[in-house]
Design a binder for these strands. Structure first.
Lengths: 339, 339
DNA sequence: GACGTGGAATGCAACGTTGCATCATGGAGT
DNA sequence: ACTCCATGATGCAACGTTGCATTCCACGTC
């Protein structure tokens, strides 16, 4: 009732039983006679007992916390993912602690090592700046799940969409609309991140299958995946006078930036320029025109990632080999390609 | 170095000193001779000692966690706010735990009471469904900061922008452009949330000052503040044939939904319809056309809120009276009103 | 009537840390 | 030479909880 915290000791005193018995009632373990249980429960309610998490954790050797390490929370893709994860984790009585790495390699390294950070029972990380080798070198004892990036040498579980076919599908969709000058927007050769590489691979595969030779002038590098970068890359492309009738952006944010640029230049979308994004963020649906995008099943990403953690945290068994989990995606076709 | 956790005991054994001395070195407290300090530090490094948070918390009676309770993480405004808060909290060695209430009154009540949830040292809550009376009735012993909603009876600190003048400013901007049929989009009479009421108040005040009588047909109610709701409200408005030359939406998401609708109907923005939003989310800048919006200083919101918590958590003093902190805002004028 | 049985309740100890009080040591002061 | 003191190092206890082992009691059985 009141805000004052009461301990097992207080409840025990009020109920006239031992601390241990109260503990049994609270945890539901051990044998407790019905009338005792009722009596203790009454005392619990009266004092508004709430277990001390720190003490429990100390005893259990767990914190009940799992970490989510993402480049940044304000990016729609990650905030949507984080929101789902927080929700899903709650159902498993876990609390999510979100860390932002801002694409900083040191920050990612620090989190993997656990230095300076709060101790978590497990960590779900969406690596960005670290190479697979780095990832392997700095992983700590805590159960780990990688999002997107595959871990080398079977270091940890990994959950991701199948980037190559997904990118292929998106590109093929544009090809099917008769587009031949399709820009690939979002290469990041300076990062060791494999995601961009895989999407590029799918893009190239689709072109080749259609008998089109990839044109380096159409492949644009970006520093990050923000709208600004998409805007800048699109602007440069147009400034250079490169002929282009479609854009496959490696993220929705990039696509939205490119879209903004197209509008500014007076290009009609999809008439003059068809645009496809990747991530299936909410904004995509409400853009003008609504953005065609590859939508990963985010709910499944969070569910599977948690399941991986649960398996490793709760089973002291001789760990099963790291799993590589592929979650489904679908190409959601909207007005930015089929007006 | 390795993933195995080592305790003060282990370090002490390796360094050949007592546990207490190691503790002194780690915490920097107490008197420790230089050569001892060096020796212990070496042992600490060698074993890669990391303090056990649970034990510390248990001893200190604090968890080092603060809660952030928001309606939903995937809304841009809240994800931007959360991102900033996580960052700012890190500097104060706090860890943020995010709870989503999804606008559910029960969820908000539960968080205020702390039932079932993890125990936090402080809670920053952005109330949505609860009335001020509810908020007062259910608050618990933990330091509390309200975002947006004023707490009644001096229950807790509150950080917010000054909604009435801000809304007034936005409306006045539209009036200054010669608009006379300005829709107010975002009323929520079914909620006890005061934010919408205040923005409506500012809107009305501006109209009256301009000698315009508020027209009920221009004031639109929404269920939530999502793009869908803005789209629906705008659609209804146009379907009813209400004459309108501008929209002041109480959130950017609503504005973006309305914008989407305007595009669909072939309205030119800002030619036929000028649009102003509220919140200053990132998307607003990249919409087509870029959205004029009231931008609250989000960084200051998080900073001030944390400062409030810090003051209450760390000062055992006879608490200062609850503060009502107003953070600055600015009207960012973009192409959706001045094309 | 003694004994075994099993359910119910309890006591002890430990998880890893830190506040407080105590103890050891060596140098300065008388 | 003896005391005094400052500095450095240590031991004890406690934070609130739970695993394990024990005790207690009532009941049924031989």
């Amino acid at each position: 009732m009141s805000g004052v915290t009461s301990r097992l000791k207080d409840v025990a005193a009020l109920a006239g039983v031992s601390i241990r018995t109260v503990s049994n009632v609270v945890s539901g373990s051990g044998a407790v006679a019905e009338h005792t249980r009722v009596k203790v429960q009454a005392a619990l309610d009266e004092l508004g007992y709430r277990p001390n998490v720190a003490a429990r954790n100390l005893r259990a050797g767990r914190t009940g916390l799992i970490g989510l390490a993402i480049p940044e929370l304000h990016s729609p893709y990650f905030s949507e993912l984080a929101g789902l994860l927080v929700q899903a984790a709650q159902q498993r009585s876990w609390t999510v602690v979100i860390d932002q790495t801002f694409g900083d390699a040191d920050a990612e390294r620090r989190l993997l090592e656990g230095t300076g950070g709060r101790v978590v029972d497990g960590l779900i990380i969406s690596p960005w700046a670290l190479s697979p080798e780095d990832l392997a070198a700095h992983a700590r004892g805590v159960p780990l799940v990688f999002l997107g990036e595959r871990s080398p040498g079977g270091l940890a579980d990994r959950v991701a969409v199948d980037n190559v076919p997904a990118a292929d599908e998106a590109t093929t969709h544009l090809l099917g609309l008769g587009r031949r000058r399709i820009a690939a927007l979002g290469l990041q050769p300076h990062l060791h991140n494999g995601t961009a590489r895989q999407r590029h691979e799918g893009y190239t595969a689709a072109l080749r299958r259609a008998g089109i030779a990839p044109d380096p002038a159409l492949e644009r590098t970006v520093a990050t995946l923000h709208r600004e970068d998409g805007y800048a890359a699109m602007s440069a492309l147009l400034d250079e006078g490169v002929e282009v009738d479609a854009v496959f952006a490696f993220s929705d944010e990039l696509a939205l930036g490119a879209l903004h640029c197209a509008h500014q230049r007076g290009l009609r979308v999809p008439g003059d320029l068809a645009v496809v994004g990747f991530d299936g963020i909410d904004d995509a649906r409400w853009a003008h025109p609504a953005l065609t995008t590859v939508v990963p099943d985010k709910r499944q990403i969070t569910e599977r990632a948690l399941q991986c953690l649960a398996d490793r945290i709760y089973s002291p068994a001789p760990a099963v080999p790291p799993q590589d989990i592929v979650v489904p995606h679908r190409l959601e076709i909207r007005a930015s390609t089929v007006g």
